[in-house]
């Protein structure tokens, strides 16, 4: 029997040959490698789509539209326009609403699943306190979302401004409004926080996933609905009549109040603040619940 006894080798801790990322962050990345790859591919595809449209297809679209002038069809022009702008629109819409996927991932796979099948508890008995586990498990995706989201925002701003004459939308559109500033990243954080809270409270991956997506829908839907009220609108002077310039956000209650373009940043930053507030609250609550449950 003693042949199999564990002989104590020199008690040096076996530090593994590490790359730049070590310890718990390495563990988080390794465990969720598949999700990381999917997210990376998705982001690269969206970025690639934007760059491709602006650099490569814009010129051919312009050529085709010039050709349209000759045949005299308004529909032809519209067709080409929508092809171009809808591709850009798809990229921004998909990336904007990807916070649903982030919330689903956080609740389902990142937190809920690990709590459900015990691998979180495994980490807790491998010298990682529950609080540190939750912190790093959320921090790693948060860093990735920040980097990826920021890159996307800059690329999108460039792409959107590049060929204004080819695009039929304006700054008031839902996805354009959100994707041209930090709100995009804030929504990602919110998805993480809400997903984490759902996962910690429910401890089962599928119900947590459903609840997290539901909550994110409520938050986003209400923000989109009341977006125009985020900042006081401008009431036109009675003599001027209804402002008909293209670049304003008309308040839809028929009173003629509107938001000029200069209101974009205040409105956007207020929305960012609200979303970040929800994210912070949800994350804090998740930590609190976890502390209460574990030693």
């Amino acid at each position: 029997m003693s042949a199999f006894a564990v002989r104590g080798t020199a008690e040096t801790p076996g530090v593994p040959p590490g790359g730049p990322v070590k310890g718990l962050p390495w563990a988080v990345l390794r465990l969720h490698r598949a999700a990381l790859l999917v997210w990376g591919a998705f982001l690269l595809a969206a970025l690639g789509m934007l760059v491709w449209e602006v650099e490569i297809t814009a010129d051919s679209v312009r050529d085709r539209m010039a050709a349209c002038e000759r045949t005299g069809g308004g529909l032809c022009r519209l067709q080409n326009l929508t092809d171009y702008s809808s591709t850009i629109g798809w990229a921004s819409t998909l990336v904007y609403y990807s916070f649903f996927a982030v919330a689903a991932f956080a609740a389902g796979a990142l937190i809920g699943r690990e709590l459900e099948n015990g691998t979180a508890q495994l980490a807790w008995t491998q010298s990682v306190s529950p609080t540190r586990w939750l912190a790093v498990t959320l921090a790693v995706p948060a860093v990735l979302l920040t980097v990826g989201g920021t890159v996307f925002v800059f690329v999108f701003r460039w792409a959107w401004a590049a060929n204004r004459d080819l695009m039929g939308d304006d700054w008031t559109f839902n996805d354009v409004f959100a994707a041209r500033g930090p709100a995009l990243v804030a929504y990602g954080f919110c998805g993480l926080g809400v997903g984490a809270l759902a996962g910690v409270v429910l401890r089962r991956s599928l119900p947590a996933l459903g609840v997290a997506c539901g909550v994110m829908y409520l938050v986003n839907h209400n923000l989109e609905k009341y977006r125009e009220d985020l900042w006081p609108a401008v009431t036109p002077a009675p003599t001027k009549g209804v402002e008909m310039s293209q670049d304003v956000w008309q308040i839809g209650d028929g009173t003629g109040r509107f938001h000029p373009r200069s209101h974009y940043w205040p409105m956007h930053l207020v929305e960012t603040g609200i979303v970040l507030g929800v994210a912070v609250l949800a994350t804090g609550a998740a930590f609190w619940v976890l502390r209460r449950r574990t030693a």
Binding site: P16, G23, A27, N117, G118, T119, L122, S127
Partner: peptide, 27 residues
Amino acid sequence: PLPLQLTVAATLRLGAELNRARWDQPA
């Protein structure tokens, strides 16, 4: 409970990474 998607070697590596203060890989 073990992370199902990892290999055996990766799981031992996980232990090494999480217990950086004291880990005996040969053991």
